[in-house]
Design a binder for these strands. Structure first.
Lengths: 197, 197
DNA sequence: AGTTGACAAACTTTGTTACTCTGTCAACCT
DNA sequence: AGGTTGACAGAGTAACAAAGTTTGTCAACT
């Protein structure tokens, strides 16, 4: 007996939830967002639509969960990349580079920018929206990791500028390699940050 | 005779043409682009639709002419602002500042970004489109005015970066004043430009 | 924790019809 | 010459109802 015996650590529902999230990500990546149905996601996850509704209260809830998951992974990745330098410029360069590469290689983001730009781009580039402010928060954090004593005005201006550049590069890829750009950006901006107020 | 006698200098119709262009700009600014009809423009210009078609071969032709006129005025204005400095940083700062102010105060651009962003923003922010490359051309010119001997790789990277920032600021206004931003950008980027290859 | 099938309400898609706008005409004015 | 008017076919858009999906919720079942 004990048909449900194993797996002592993870909660029973964790894996199903993740399975659904992965299926949603995969379905959105191949079929696009505008024609995404929860029936398709359930099919891709190998379970029924009604089961999916036990884990997510609505389609919007599901989409929000996918966005949160992807965003968190990305942020964690960037912060990890910027850690462990004893020098602000290297830290900024590594963080910026990690972000550029992650954005460029993100399959869903890439697909959406290509196939549904009219829906996505205003969302990303608009100052009012949630994207710019969240990205800016992370950028400020990365800068502070390298320079905890920085003047708050400089921090704000630089974070704003870097955020705009990151989003611009995400929306339309530059000619130069991410490495060249990250180096150029970090070496331009770090000296300004070091000026004492 | 001479039915084809070809108008040596300026055509007689110059003022009428300008009148139509101004009317088109005004109508677009108040009524938006998507619902712009050539009948409305003709009415605003105080002449008939058919007369308008003597000066512009199509609606697209008219719109293109308005865009060309506005763009030229703007470019001329920016280049004039960046002229007459003996120092690359001041020249860049003045040019960037003039561009920021002109973009922010342009009534039609402002109106369109507010009311029809979905049509406009992808056009502006997409690398493939004509906007980024034209803006970039002007930015390169302004940099070259200050530093004719600059390394071409530095020139390209800096122009690309400045172009992305300008477009980003045009699409969503920053918190800081144009003066602060222009000063910050110019003082960050000029030192990098001065490095010898 | 999962499945199936059934269901109303909300939302899309499709096809139809009526309308407005474009671009061009010829005849007329000044 | 440049300008005007009114008329016109064809393209494009608006409106709208019928048909079809999709969402979110049930209750009954494994």
């Amino acid at each position: 007996m004990e048909p449900l015996a194993p797996l002592p650590t993870e909660p029973l529902t964790r894996s199903t939830r993740d399975q659904i999230l992965n299926a949603a990500l995969a379905t959105a990546t191949t079929h696009g967002i505008s024609r995404l149905s929860v029936g398709d996601v359930a099919k891709a996850a190998g379970l029924s639509r009604q089961t999916l509704y036990r884990h997510f209260t609505s389609k919007d809830d599901l989409i929000a969960a996918v966005v949160v998951q992807e965003t968190s992974t990305l942020i964690e990745h960037v912060i990890r990349a910027a850690s462990g330098f004893d020098n602000p410029q290297d830290s900024l360069e590594a963080g910026f580079l990690a972000a550029l590469i992650a954005l460029r290689e993100h399959p869903l983001l890439d697909q959406l920018v290509r196939t549904e730009p009219d829906a996505l781009i205003p969302l990303l580039t608009t100052g009012g929206g949630p994207v710019m402010s969240q990205v800016r928060g992370v950028v400020e954090l990365v800068i502070l990791m390298g320079q905890p004593e920085i003047d708050s005005g400089h921090l704000g201006r630089t974070a704003d500028l870097l955020t705009r550049l990151l989003i611009s590069y995400a929306v339309s890829a530059p000619d130069d390699s991410p490495e060249v750009i990250a180096n150029f950006v970090a070496s331009s901006l770090t000296p300004v940050l070091e000026v004492q107020p």
